[in-house]
Every structure is written in C-alpha cells, then in structure tokens.
Amino acid sequence: MIHITGETGLTGLLGSPVAHSISPLMHNYSFQSLGLDYVYLCFDVKEQGLKDAVQGLRALNVKGFNLTMPDKNKVLEHLDELSCAARLIGAVNTVENRDGRLIGHNTDGIGFMRSVAEQGLEMKGKTMTLLGAGGAATAICAQAALDGVAHMHIFLRSTSSHLSRMEALAENLSVETGCKFQIHDIRDLQTLEHAVRESTLLVNATSVGMAPRPDTCILPEDFAFPAALSVADIIYNPWETRLLSLAKKAGCKTFNGYGMLLYQGAEAFRIWTGREMPMKQVREYLQTDF
C-alpha cells in the first residue's frame, strides 16, 4: 500500500488516453522500494486543457510530470526551459520542477539508446538506419546523434507530412554533432538494402506491426537482412513483431521496445529524485503483473 504523508511529492502523467499506462506501476513500485516519499498518478488531460493543467501543477509545486500524446508538443509554450534534446526534437515527455522553474526534457531517445547499450551494441562512430519520422523517430534520431552515431540513413515516405520537420532536424543535428544524415524514400528498396549493409543497427520507429495488426511489416517478406545487422523495433505489443521475426530468421540480433519504455521512465525517475530506478526489481515486478 502507498503511504501518503503531508510531505509526499507528486509526480504523474498527462495525456489522453492514459488509463493503459504502466508508468504508475513502475514509478510507485520504485518509490516504495527506495523508501522515497513520492506518488505517481495519471491525469487524462486533452490538448485544450493542457495550459490549465500545467498552471495548476506549477501552483501545487509538484516534483515533475510526464507527458504523452497529444500533449508532448503543445506543452513547450508553457515551460521555462528546455534540455538540449527537447529543444532539438521540439517535444517534451518529462518535466522537472526545479525551484519553481519548469524544465522540459525528452527521455525517449535516452531510453532507446540505453536499451541499445543493454544489448551490448556500441554505436559511437557507427552507422544506423532509421525507419520513420514521427515523435519516437525524431527522439531516437536526436539522441543517437548526440551519443556519437557518425552516419544515419533515415527512410520515410517522400509524401510524409513529417518530411520537412525531419530535414530541419537533420540539418540542425549535423551542425551540432557532426553526424552525417541522408534522407531517403522508404519505397526505394535498393537504397534501403544498401543502407542496412553498411549499418550496425536498423530501427523501426513506426507503428507498423503493432497490435491490433501484428501481421503487418514495414519491410517486404523477402528483404535481405545481413546476418551481422542488429534490428530493433520500438513496438513491444506484440512482443516479437513480424519484422523482428524475419530478422531473427536471417541470423540478426533483435530486440523490441520494452527496454526503451523502461529506460525512458528510469531517466525521468532520475531527473525527479536524483536516484537510479531499481531496474532489475522493476522488470521482475512488471512481469508478475502482465
């Protein structure tokens, strides 16, 4: 049971919908495990109510909060400061209250890159191929460049509404980090096959393959995966997407988005508390709840 005191620090999640989130489980379990007087709650806040919600949380002097869709982009205008990654990406998923100043962070990319390191992959100076240009893709793109990836191939539809945003992000990241970017049409399979041959890691940062359509795949069934390639999919429902299944059959190392989910939460936990989330225990706890 969570014990609430007169000094309990409030953290939580804003977005809509939020009822499905596992964040309360992982954060409240971690608070209790470390003996921290904090609580994490979910608040269903749509875009039109975001300004009032943020003003209210500031007035209540909360420790911090997370944001999910549709609030990640809209919250920027209500904050006092942005981290480097949040500024580059133009989206915030974690807010820190530092002595009354609300500071926006984006921990999605950090979470993904920590999950990459957990697989024993060293990406500094290496080449990566990224599929997609949405919120998750931009976060991964920015953090990978900040962490020292030297060359990145980004594939999306040339008609995508996200194309101009991704081009601007790539240009800014190239200046700030020295990473070389090439943006291609995802329908150009010859170029895609060439890109993965020179890559250490291929990442699907789209929702293609996610339940309730687990039979779909971002790449064709006969795609030529080099056996030396590692393949990541940010989806974790289903646990093994069709993409990961095909890559595994080709001999590739594969992993899903569950590690990204946990590590982005762990980074928010560290920002709020200054403590490391007890990841081993959290993993065991969540496995007993699902």
Rank of each mutant, 00 (worst) to 15 (best):
F225E: 13
E193M: 00
T241F: 04
L189E: 02
S160H: 02
C217G: 06
M152L: 13
A145K: 11
H151D: 04
P220V: 01
F223N: 14
S230I: 00
L131G: 15
G132S: 02
S245Q: 14
P212Q: 12
A139L: 07
L246I: 01
S199F: 09
L201H: 12
Q143E: 10
L146G: 11
D233A: 09
V149Q: 13
L169M: 10
S207D: 09
H153V: 09
V208S: 11
L130Y: 08
S160I: 07
A247L: 03
P226T: 05
L169Y: 13
L189R: 07
A195G: 01
K248F: 03
C141R: 13
R187C: 15
K248Q: 08
A168P: 06
L202A: 08
A144W: 09
L246G: 03
G120V: 13
R187P: 01
M128R: 14
V196L: 03
M166H: 12
G134F: 00
S161D: 08
F223I: 01
K249V: 06
R165K: 15
D188M: 06
P238M: 06
I183E: 11
A137R: 04
V116K: 01
G259H: 04
N204E: 06
G251L: 08
T177V: 12
E193G: 07
M166N: 07
N204W: 06
D233N: 07
M123V: 07
H151Y: 12
T200R: 12
C252R: 00
E171F: 04
A247H: 00
T206V: 05
L131H: 13
L229F: 15
S158K: 14
H151K: 15
